[in-house]
């Protein structure tokens, strides 16, 4: 226990309103879990829209998904799963007080997240070249379905919002990296690493649902 020595100095990371480090850690973790629930409901709205329109226009979904590049989608899936692994290893390193391992794993995670965004960028650009824009700007004629724009509106909303979460994740991970290099984390205190890891797993899980729902319709 943090206070068992009964010294007059509490650990530097302990905020004044908590009794001990455990309480602080548990609170932060619970807060992040609840936040993740809100994220699921946030995306839930889009999944509901997806389901409604898929029920109405099943053949549109089959046709339109052929425009999505399954190969690069699969690569991106592998990339994100890999980054989830490295973020878990980063947490493990912090628990074992291996700060160097923590930093290396954070670097790899950021690199993988960045790779994901680059691939996504090329996917988007490829579609824009064909005239596949969201909503009323849609001009592509290769799909014989008058509601083709709806599928891509949903596609852009879902992947765009997911991409935004990836970018936020990259930002958080860079912040962790800076703090780790300053020696802020140790086996006693790695709460930010832990809860950012939780967030990152959610970003990964959402993609694991998006990939088959959008790319693998057949």
């Amino acid at each position: 226990m943090a206070h068992s020595t009964a010294s007059s100095s509490a650990p530097a990371h302990l905020q004044h309103h908590f009794v001990d480090s455990d309480q602080q850690f548990e609170s932060s973790k619970m807060g992040m879990w609840i936040f993740l629930v809100t994220e699921i409901l946030f995306f839930g709205g889009l999944f509901a829209a997806y389901i409604v329109y898929r029920a109405w226009y099943p053949d549109l979904y089959v046709q339109a998904s052929t425009q999505l590049d399954t190969f690069w989608g699969a690569v991106n899936t592998a990339v994100l799963i890999g980054s989830s692994l490295t973020v878990a290893m980063a947490i493990r390193s912090a628990q074992l007080n291996q700060i160097k391992g923590l930093i290396i794993n954070l670097y790899i995670t950021i690199g993988l997240a960045f790779t994901f965004m680059v691939i996504k960028y090329f996917e988007y650009v490829h579609k824009f070249e064909k005239g596949i824009f969201p909503g009323q700007y849609y001009t592509y004629e290769g799909i014989a379905h008058e509601k083709a724009n709806i599928f891509f509106s949903i596609y852009y909303m879902m992947t765009g919002l997911h991409g935004l979460h990836v970018i936020i994740g990259i930002g958080l991970m860079i912040w962790l990296l800076v703090k780790a290099k300053k020696g802020a984390f140790s086996a006693e205190y790695y709460t930010p690493v832990e809860i950012t890891g939780l967030y990152w797993h959610l970003v990964d899980v959402i993609w694991i649902f998006l990939f088959p729902l959008l790319y693998l319709i057949d």
Binding site: A49, Q136, N149, I150, S153, Y156
Partner: peptide, 16 residues
């Protein structure tokens, strides 16, 4: 997004 990009999810004219 409907107002900015006309994504059409709630717009019957675009299939929404």
């Amino acid at each position: 997004m409907e107002r900015a990009l006309g994504i059409g999810i709630f717009d019957p004219a675009l299939g929404g």
